[in-house]
Design a protein around this nucleic acid. Structure first.
Lengths: 325, 325
DNA sequence: ATGAAAGCGCTAACAG
DNA sequence: CTGTTAGCGCTTTCAT
């Protein structure tokens, strides 16, 4: 089993030259039916599996796409990853997922391996995007795509964050809320800033006067989110609505509120972001700003594979109103 | 950028032979400090990045480990994947995640690419494990590891499923439950069967007489789970406790129950399986049978990388009692 | 339609 | 300690 057979073995067994086998394998030149049949048989009998590394060695890119994320345990990112995988597999590529944990050193080590592997492309949501690690991968010849961040150096796909913020705030305004909290988490600072802009814009347009206080969870785990939610609830200070940076935070907040006996949305309205699958399973189904992670991922993958053409823009975020507002 | 430089360019620029550069790169033979310095400089100036594909072509395995899962959006599987990644990265390997969706054809296509890439190993939870696709990867020379399934043909890591079932049932028995439902989902049939055995065993040992009815969700998404939970609740037929095949199902059931105004655990006790992070954020925190996905993954990865030695058994499942029972 | 042969970038065995 | 060189498995001209 360990002793793999090579194209030469196949050639011998089929009594043809290696060149012919190669042409058969890659469908590069027409092959006489009889010859093809013999080759096919030889491959079969030998259990021959072509070695993709050779092509890569000769200058081609590896059939791999890298996805660098802070943490795939975020369901939204998992969705993005599925989107990437969908178009990758379609083109015979596979996806290498790298959880950086936001750790520069970890990212560096990943980058090194990816560069040496000559991955075809790298997609990242890492906020350290501008740093050295990615540059290494790019220097290796990979197409680097940034998701959710702008950059002059790299291709990028973006969500309309200001619009997302705008939609959320507009909705809250319509419901009469005038004192809100923004519940954030670690990371994603640029995106959050953009959304905050959209929120302010909505307030301006409505000619309203709204106060937004901000709370942040410290960690990327449920315990941290729950803890932060408790503090938020303790210091509510008259706020009647909460805009959350993602559904995970919103879910934590809802749970904390429900446990205290608050009624949602009467006592506190909650609006999330991402519209992950879980948001419908909250006891009070979550209102959320939807945007398709799958689509975003697919788009990024297309870019990373150089399929720039016929690429329609990612659909804009939209509000999904459920019962938490 | 696209014109990568080769080891020969480095050798020339450093005025040494390629062999010496190779020895420097791989630390295979001692190099004079002065020479090393020149090589280092040359590499730097040229932006040389070694091509890992060459090693693979020469018979070595690719620095990649494949993880084939039905669907990584399951948080527990995401954890397993993190465990795999932890030990992989430590050894300079990266992880290729393949969401099979339980689709044989998809799995086949993944397998083909993985085999041609000569991945070092493949870890799978796919239930189609015994089928052709995996065999292909194995034939390519990869070490194949099965997680959560027994097999003569492949190495495997297992959770003590009977014990897990036993623990859950024993706990319910102590709480006085005599009529229970088992809430399952698609896939994982063998594991569920084993747990059912453990459940029966607990009943036998306690000398009790318990009736277990079974319900299954149809899909792997929250909507399906919720729908199944509703049916389950409609046909409760006197059952006072539910054992769920995983926490996602348990969470869905809890939500459905809470929405109907049922009290948990007074009206219905719920016990989950996996102890995912979300289980603490349920309105009524979930009692669950805990087992570390991360540890399981790490174990599997060690096996897949041939680090068989010093491998202690995976820690047994344990009951984490919270408020849902 | 098929064959022969020159590499691709690098490692490893051998010489010096 | 350093240089030379023969491949590794395959693609790709260039012939035939």
């Amino acid at each position: 089993m360990a002793a793999r057979s090579s194209i030469r073995d196949v050639a011998e067994r089929a009594a043809v030259s290696v060149g012919t086998v190669s042409n058969f394998l890659n469908d590069t030149k027409p092959i006489a039916p009889a010859t093809a049949e013999r080759i096919r048989a030889a491959i079969d009998e030998l259990g021959f599996i072509p070695n993709a590394a050779v092509r890569v060695m000769q200058g081609a890119r590896s059939p791999a796409l890298a996805f660098l994320v802070p943490d795939l345990s975020n369901p939204f990112l998992a969705e993005v990853s599925r989107g990437i995988e969908d178009v990758a597999l379609e083109r015979g590529h596979i996806v290498i997922t790298c959880n950086t944990d936001g750790d520069l050193d970890r990212e560096q080590r990943f980058a090194q391996v990816l560069a040496e592997m000559r991955v075809a492309g790298a997609i990242t949501m890492a906020m350290t995007a501008e740093g050295e690690p990615l540059q290494l991968v790019k220097d290796s010849g990979a197409r680097v795509v940034l998701v959710g961040a702008h950059s002059d150096e790299y291709i990028s796909v973006n969500i309309d964050n200001p619009l997302a913020g705008y939609l959320a705030m507009q909705h809250l305004l319509e419901r009469g809320h005038r004192r809100c909290v923004f519940f954030g988490g670690p990371g994603a600072a640029p995106q959050i800033a953009e959304r905050l802009d959209g929120i302010q814009e909505a307030i301006r347009v409505a000619g309203a006067s709204v106060e937004i206080t901000r709370f942040d969870a410290a960690g990327n785990d449920m315990a941290s989110r729950l803890r932060a939610a408790e503090t938020l609830l303790d210091d509510l200070d008259g706020a009647t609505a909460a805009i959350c940076a993602n559904d995970l935070l919103a879910l934590a907040l809802e749970t904390a509120a429900l446990r205290r006996g608050l009624r949602i949305p009467q006592d506190l309205a909650i609006i999330g972001y991402d519209d992950i699958d879980d948001s419908i399973s909250a006891v009070v189904p979550l209102t959320s700003v939807h945007h398709s992670g799958r689509e975003l991922g697919a788009h990024a993958a297309a870019l990373a594979l150089g399929l720039d053409e016929d690429l329609r823009p990612v659909s804009p975020p939209r509000l999904v109103v459920r019962e938490s507002t």
